[in-house]
Simulated scan of single mutants.
Amino acid sequence: MKIGYRTIKTAIGTPIAIWITQTLGVANFVSAGILTILCIQPSRKLSVLSAWDRFFACVLAILFSYVFFKLFGYSPIVIGFMLMAFIPVLVYFNITQGIGTSVVIILNIYGQKMITLPFLTDQFIIIVVGVGVGLLMNLYMPNLERKMRTLQVKLENNFRLILHEIATLIEDPDHEWDRKELEEVNRILRRAGNLVGIDKENHLLRDEHPYADYFSMRGRQFVLLQTMIPLVETLPRHDEISVQIADFFERLSTAVHPGNTADKFLEELKDLKRQFRREDLPANQEEFETRSNLFQLLHEIEDYLIIKSKFKKSDIKAKQSKKRQTGPA
């Protein structure tokens, strides 16, 4: 069984918070550990926002406790009525994350059955230590670079397989394909989106993310791949253009990588389109529908390549530019 980093931080932070408050002689020192547990968050941004929400909510809890217990006494019924008034206030200020921690403070005051300045000082120390230790624990976040790189590799492998299967379907319409790669790509994109979101929140001062645009680009390409499959299934068995398109897809499947050679394939696609236009006009309805689907397929693959071309500077042009600068080898 794998132990997560949040579990480790909770296991470290909780006893530290309890030790600090116990050393300071604070009443209800165990509550500092509870507050630390509640403050452990999956990202730095959430941690900072959560720390503020919980601190503000706890301060409000002290004020509400003072008013309600002073006016109506110490009774479970009073706690119920207090929460009915207190929780809507937290919702109004949009600090609902502080409900759990603030209730801990309310119950501490209720258990004491008296409100004195030294006791309120103890509660304030519990809040500062509990929330503060949780915030400090969340300053460390694991590097997600390796996980995102792994997902990138898996995603590109599945793109290669999908393009290869499309090429095979064009050559052999009877080819059986379970299409498990499509579901795998969906799963990878969802997982990547979650990781990118968390990693963004772990880097509070960084505006751009190296993988956010990449996975977004692949997501748009994947939509187009899914659109191509029904078109491919309608192509004729024996057609010169279809054979060339199948070869085009096969070569494209070997060129899926983080770099950008899309411009090269866009030029080849222009040649295919010119050849397509030189073909004889369709003689019947079936040929017309086939020709229409073929033209739509060329349009979809062009959009697929344009998306990649806009995402990253062409590696082909970069090599040509470098070669001109350095001269012949």
Rank of each mutant, 00 (worst) to 15 (best):
T7Y: 10
I16L: 14
I16G: 06
W19N: 08
V26A: 06
F29H: 12
L38W: 00
L38N: 00
C39S: 12
C39G: 04
Q41G: 00
S43G: 01
R44D: 02
K45N: 07
D53S: 13
R54A: 02
F56N: 03
F64M: 04
Y66G: 01
Y66V: 06
V67T: 07
K70T: 15
F72A: 13
Y74S: 06
S75V: 01
I77Q: 09
V78Y: 03
V78D: 07
F81M: 13
F86N: 06
V89A: 15
Y92L: 15
N94G: 10
G98D: 07
G98A: 05
S102F: 11
V103Q: 10
T116H: 08
P118I: 05
D122R: 02
F124E: 03
G130F: 08
V133N: 01
V133D: 01
G134V: 07
L136N: 07
R149H: 13
L155T: 15
E156V: 08
E156W: 13
N157G: 15
N158L: 11
N158R: 09
N158A: 13
N158E: 13
I166D: 04
I166A: 08
E171Q: 11
E176Y: 10
D178H: 10
K180I: 11
K180P: 00
E181C: 02
E183Q: 14
G193Y: 02
N194Q: 13
V196W: 06
V196C: 04
I198W: 08
E201Q: 13
H203T: 00
L205T: 12
R206P: 00
E208C: 00
D213P: 00
Y214A: 06
M217L: 09
M217D: 08
R220T: 04
F222Q: 07
V223S: 09
Q226G: 05
M228P: 01
T234P: 01
I241K: 07
V243I: 10
Q244A: 08
Q244L: 12
D247H: 09
F248T: 05
E250K: 11
S253E: 10
T254I: 09
H257K: 14
H257G: 13
N260H: 05
F265P: 10
E268T: 02
K270G: 03
D271V: 11
L272G: 02
K273G: 08
K273A: 02
Q275F: 13
Q275G: 15
E279M: 14
E279V: 09
E279P: 00
F288G: 09
E289M: 15
E300C: 10
E302S: 12
D303R: 13
L305P: 06
I306H: 09
K308G: 07
K308C: 04
K310I: 01
K310L: 11
F311N: 08
K317P: 01
K319L: 12
K322E: 15
R324Y: 03
